[in-house]
């Protein structure tokens, strides 16, 4: 899922400083599951903003609401009137949701309440780790189900580099070396010979480097 992290209050306060009535809009999907921008977090942020603005003698008209997803029109459209009733919106959805809102409500300032951080998973309660970089050309079949693009600091295709020590990455001693993980996993699978072939230079055109990516499915069109 998409993992996000709440922005510092100071930054959000600054964004909405000149607006009287503000809606804090939570998103009930990815950012709710990673506790960054769901219903509860939207409530907390709204409460923080109200207190902070109260202390500054500013308007405390900060309301909160949460919709299931801010990345689909079907969920955004029903709150048209609510959005019309405020001067600005702080969206605690990921960057996709913020843009969905901005596209739907052209004349309304929409501000991000979270930093969209990575695609990952909670490996244990309270610990979220990156797993995928959406490079558009999955090679997990070759690397034992462990992604070197996302998990190696240098996105090496032919690791591990000389900085792999005791299973850890030299860039951060708390981070496992992705290529050590790949080596260990392929070893368990009895497929170490996979590592003997030189993996060719990666085609990055399917990644963000190729420009805006888009998928068309005629069968799904109306």
């Amino acid at each position: 899922m998409i993992i996000a992290q709440r922005k510092p209050l100071e930054e959000i306060k600054e964004m909405v400083a000149s607006y009287e009535k503000v809606l804090v809009l939570g998103c009930g999907t990815c950012v709710a599951v990673c506790f960054a921008g769901g219903e509860k977090e939207a409530k907390l942020l709204a409460s923080e903003l109200r207190m902070a603005r109260q202390m500054e003698g500013k308007s405390t008209q900060i309301i909160e609401h949460t919709i299931q997803r801010q990345c689909e029109w079907e969920f955004i459209d029903p709150i048209k009137e609510l959005v019309a009733s405020v001067d600005a919106v702080v969206s605690t959805a990921c960057g996709i949701g913020v843009q969905g809102m901005a596209e739907r409500f052209e004349d309304k300032p929409i501000f991000p309440g979270v930093n969209t951080t990575f695609l990952g998973m909670p490996v244990q309660p309270g610990e979220f780790v990156e797993r995928c970089q959406a490079c558009g050309d999955c090679i997990l079949d070759l690397t034992g189900g462990i992604c070197p693009v996302a998990r190696c600091a240098k996105s090496l295709m032919n690791g591990p580099c000389g900085g792999s020590q005791n299973g850890k990455c030299e860039v951060n001693p708390e981070t496992p070396c992705a290529w050590q993980l790949i080596y260990d996993r392929l070893s368990k699978l009895g497929q170490l010979e996979r590592l003997l072939d030189v993996m060719p230079a990666k085609n990055w055109s399917t990644s963000r480097d190729g420009g805006l990516r888009k998928i068309i499915r005629e069968d799904l069109k109306l």
């Binding site: 240098k154 090496l156 295709m157 990666k202």
Partner: peptide, 13 residues
């Protein structure tokens, strides 16, 4: 950072 290639694909090139 770039890391379009790695040392081995650089050698190849």
């Amino acid at each position: 950072n770039v890391h379009d290639l790695d040392s081995i694909t650089l050698i190849q090139m």
